[in-house]
Amino acid sequence: MRSATISVLVENESGVLARVIGLFSGRGYNIDSLTVAPVERDGSKSRITIVTQGTEMVIEQIKAQLDRLVPVYKVLDLTEGPHLSRELALIKVLGTGEKRAEALRLADAFRARVIDATTESFTFELTGATDKLDAFLDLMRPVGLAEVSRTGVAAIARGVGTIE
């Protein structure tokens, strides 16, 4: 088993996300994370980033199945080379007194920004690799973690190479 981060460049038409998701549910593949947004200036293409897990054979299948979809331009397995993955999380922490101060100290160590505050709460914004976000959330739990909203992973290859 391995984890794979796959970028899929698709025609930005209605139903394309449903095709991708239907493929995963219909064939019993995992989705750990899935993000999508238009990436072309005219909005004609979108990029879907999927984090999935499987044996080498299953991951090859996933890529081939994605590539077979009519509105798919390109499938790129970023895990085959050096690449960058980032996720953004908005994290609400409730508390007063010493817990509140501790929350701020931890946020500082992780370079999380405070984007909203009341006398009983902070909302942090944190960007980073998935494991960094996970670590931050683990630490925040005893300090008053109340709510999380995560974007899922966006990823890109290192160096000069591009998906097209």
Binding site: M57, E60, Q61, R68
Partner: peptide, 11 residues
């Protein structure tokens, strides 16, 4: 003709 048929069940 369909790459997704290759290595699907039999390597």
């Amino acid at each position: 003709i369909d790459p997704s048929n290759v290595n699907k069940s039999v390597a």
